[in-house]
Write a protein that binds this DNA or RNA. Structure first.
Lengths: 211, 211
DNA sequence: AATATTATTGACCGTTTGGTCAGGTTTCTA
DNA sequence: TAGAAACCTGACCAAACGGTCAATAATATT
């Protein structure tokens, strides 16, 4: 009789398993079609569950979407907080960039999920962007600014440097289709990411060198 | 009685006007929600026309979408063909980058339209990507490779340099929401693009310098 | 083994969606 | 200015959509 709704009781074996199946399916679907373009039926099919069964575990489409975003968001933004003010500036920036690139390779769907959310105006996570994300970026931007002021890296706007890193790395997940098409029939994923790695590193290292 | 379908007759005044109204509306809607997330009703509302009237000018939702993509595609990819093999390498690359950045500012919806199409797997323009786009990129990549081989710019993979330029510039259109949130309440569009311009230019110019 | 809880589903509901169509109105053309 | 062509719309349709619910099946607890 107890609805698993407000006060979270202990999760059953089946509940934990099925909720994760649904969230996995939802990631595949939402990351491709965005919130509005996705349907519960698609998610149910992908999770190999009936639609009513999906709605037994989640209150509705939006509930799935929000929970998925929450689950993915922290993990996706985490690396930035590891940018170490006491480390070697260029090393730290390059290391962060490479971690982000690796994430785009390992979990492109997460990247596309956020890309879709941004394109649709970030209706669901606008507050997080203006809150936690902004705070974290502000903090790390001031670290980068310090490095620049000290003359340890070139004088660049720290915010736009971060944007450039985000853009460059996430591009390999979000525009995967385009990249495959342009690189042609001989496309090889590992090769592509290795080339990306050396190109980005090279431009970033030289680009940040004090003149 | 003549259906405006196969052999294109002369366009009436009203036809030209309304088709453009519809395509303008479609750009606004499709660029935000992608093909699947958008509805004809939304487009009709935005164009201030009735739904049946929209379908009087276009055969269906997909017809609007494809015509819109075709109309926008050429314009969006054009600048790359102006990359001049006989110009100064760094100048040419920076100039191209700045044109792309300017396009992201002037026509962010076009950028988001393509971003959505890519995220959804480029079902409608996959052939164009593998055809015209690939051919153009191949051509210009070989130009950049020549510059690198001659030692006029740093040795970087030309394809990934182009990806980096696309990513960095389009980011300002596609992730506009995120950028606004992170830059906070004092956000100013002109200021943002000026800072972006100098940051990207700086990193690119130094990054491409021969060591 | 009996019982309480959790899990699952077919059938269903109201709404939205892409699209059609008959018929009326406006605009063009001779 | 009359007729032809182009334009526009209310009413409609079938399918897809988000979501509900009563009833049944599986599992856990005692």
């Amino acid at each position: 009789m107890m609805k698993r709704a407000a006060a979270s009781k202990k999760k059953t074996r089946i509940q934990a398993k099925n909720e994760q199946k649904i969230l996995d399916a939802a990631l595949a679907v939402f990351s491709q079609f965005g919130f509005r373009g996705s349907t519960i039926d698609q998610i149910a099919d992908h999770a190999q569950l009936s639609k009513p069964n999906v709605l037994y575990y989640f209150r509705g489409k939006q509930d799935i979407y929000v929970r998925l975003l929450q689950q993915t968001l922290d993990h996706w933004l985490a690396p930035l907080s590891e940018l170490d003010p006491d480390g070697d500036p260029v090393d730290q920036i390059v290391k962060y960039t490479m971690i982000k690139l690796e994430m785009s390779r390992k979990n492109p769907e997460a990247s596309r999920l956020f890309a879709n959310e941004m394109l649709q105006g970030a209706a669901m996570i606008g507050d997080v962007l203006k809150g936690d994300l902004k705070a974290l970026v502000d903090e790390k931007a001031s670290v980068i600014k310090l490095w620049a002021d000290r003359g340890e890296i070139a004088k660049v706007d720290p915010y736009h440097l971060i944007f450039m890193i985000w853009a460059t790395t996430q591009h390999y997940a979000d525009f995967d289709t385009q990249i495959r098409s342009v690189l042609g029939a001989t496309y090889n994923k590992d090769r592509c990411f290795l080339d990306a790695q050396s190109t980005i590193t090279s431009i970033l290292v030289n680009g940040l060198k004090v003149q």
